[in-house]
């Protein structure tokens, strides 16, 4: 009965969505409402107004920077959620090997990983820094950094990774994205403009441009590194041995 109701409700929503998609403005038509209102402005003036030749970056960091700050906070929040529920990684227990099979990875794997990780990180840095001109940016770069560390952990085990990137250095880095964003925001207020303004009033054009570049850089790097570290920390927190289970009910 319950299932039938659920199915019916889902079917209803599905039909509704399909209908809505059918009624939507034709895909890709240049006369669509979403292409005639704010989008042209972004496309035409994005580079000069927002200081990023990549329009996506211009929108993310500048026009809708406040949203992006929120999204960075979402990622930070996800980390906090995982850590708060699961706790930080448990390295002190009987965990000499990280993986469930308790078999060390072979020399080939370890050597390859040792070689690959710096290359991946280097690529990530490129992605982060080049975000304002080509597709890419902090989020993507962060994901790549995270992937490289995950790869390292898979090969060398949790204790080795946590020794390389200790908790003490990770904690400030995790907050770094939000803090960088807020710092950029407060800089605007400090100069007497609105929150998250990139062009400071009362400065020469050159100085203002430089400050804008620096701020964007700081934010991009912040998002990138913090994102990478957050992915890492989440994975560390989730690594569990078989025996370590959720705490049983006290009641």
């Amino acid at each position: 009965m319950r299932k039938a109701i659920m199915l019916l409700a889902l079917a209803g929503i599905g039909v509704m969505l399909i209908y809505a998609v059918g009624e939507m403005p034709p895909m890709g038509d240049s006369g669509n409402p979403d292409k005639t209102h704010v989008a042209p402005r972004y496309l035409e003036h994005g580079e000069e107004e927002a200081g990023a030749s990549n329009v996506v970056t211009a929108v993310i960091l500048n026009y809708r920077g406040y949203d992006t700050m929120g999204e960075v906070a979402v990622i930070f929040c996800a980390l906090c959620a995982v850590v708060a529920v699961l706790g930080r990684e448990k390295t002190g227990l009987s965990r000499t090997h990280m993986d469930v099979s308790r078999v060390k990875a072979s020399v080939v794997v370890r050597t390859t990983v040792r070689f690959l990780v710096p290359v991946i990180i280097f690529f990530a840095i490129y992605i982060i820094l080049h975000g304002e001109e080509t597709p890419g940016g902090g989020f993507q770069g962060g994901a790549i950094i995270g992937a490289s560390i995950i790869l390292f952990t898979l090969a060398f085990g949790l204790p080795e990774s946590t020794r390389k990137i200790p908790l003490k250095s990770r904690v400030p880095l995790e907050s770094f994205a939000v803090i960088a964003f807020l710092a950029a925001g407060f800089t605007g207020i400090l100069f007497g403009a609105n929150f998250l303004t990139y062009i400071m009033p009362g400065l020469s054009e050159h100085a203002a441009e430089t400050i804008r570049q620096v701020m964007m850089m700081v934010i991009e790097i912040g998002i990138g590194f913090a994102g990478g570290i957050i992915f890492t920390s989440i994975m560390f927190a989730m690594i569990r041995e078989d025996k370590y289970e959720l705490q049983p009910d006290s009641s």
Binding site: G70, V74, A81, A84, V85, Q247, D249
Partner: peptide, 26 residues
């Protein structure tokens, strides 16, 4: 409206986590 959605995600995720924070199975 999108900003609203972003903040909605933050308060939703943090409240899921806070509900579960004791780590008890229930």
């Amino acid at each position: 409206i999108f900003n609203m959605f972003v903040f909605m995600e933050i308060f939703s995720i943090s409240s899921y986590a806070l509900v579960a924070i004791t780590g008890q199975r229930r």
